[in-house]
């Protein structure tokens, strides 16, 4: 169905977010092109997660506009973006392979790619184990393995390094580097300096109510 669609640009203009009664941020504008990465920094509650969910279409936009432009006109966010949030979306009763196998089928990815995706995060030898016996870090790696499995140009990552050890962070950085080199784009909320080239920070604190109000 979708074979490596390319992203032209992600354009955010005048974006605002209100959760409950509280204005989280406003007047947020930026642009991310192919091969670029934007790191969201800022204190807790500055709206990093909200922004990622808004781009993913999982949160209402209060004001402003988010434009995700692909190489073709008929591509939607679902065809272009992949979201990895706080939760790993891993089912404990299913084995590691079954977990990833479901997503492969669900996204129409050939099942041959599963083994390679597991190998990237060092889960290859654990494929037959029920995901319930995995540690928190291993579950996170299993969740992140979807990035390698499903080919989407725009990655939306919410604190992807949480509960990962140094080796796994290195594997993730490699994966991200490769993604950027192949013309992908990343928007990530992270506290860790991943040491990637060409990364632009976006300080969410400057758009919060505290600065403006």
């Amino acid at each position: 169905m979708t074979t490596s669609e390319a992203l032209n640009t992600l354009t955010v203009t005048g974006l605002a977010c209100v959760r409950g009664e509280r204005e989280v941020f406003r007047d947020l504008s930026f642009r991310v092109g192919a091969g670029e990465m934007l790191t969201l920094v800022g204190p807790n509650g500055s709206g990093k997660s909200s922004l990622l969910r808004q781009i993913a279409g999982l949160l209402d936009i209060t004001a402003g506009e988010i434009l995700v432009e692909g190489s073709r006109d008929d591509l939607s966010v679902a065809d272009l973006a992949l979201y990895a949030g706080h939760l790993d979306a891993v089912k404990s009763p299913l084995s590691v392979i079954e977990n990833l196998g479901f997503w492969a089928q669900f996204y129409g990815v050939p099942s041959e790619k599963i083994a390679a995706a597991l190998e990237i995060f060092g889960l290859g030898h654990l494929g037959h184990l029920p995901a319930g016996v995995l540690s928190a870090g291993q579950k996170r790696r299993l969740g992140l393995a979807r990035l390698a499995l499903i080919d989407r140009p725009l990655w939306l990552l919410d604190e992807p390094t949480v509960s990962l050890d140094t080796a796994s962070i290195a594997a993730l950085v490699d994966l991200m580097q490769g993604h950027l080199q192949q013309g992908g784009a990343i928007v990530a909320a992270t506290h860790v300096d991943l040491g990637l080239d060409g990364v632009r920070p976006l300080d969410m604190g400057h758009h919060g109510r505290g600065e403006h109000g």
């Binding site: 030898h125 654990l126 184990l129 029920p130 016996v133 995995l134 291993q138």
Partner: peptide
Amino acid sequence: RTLQMQQAA
């Protein structure tokens, strides 16, 4: 189950 947990660890 114990062996699986050991293997995972």
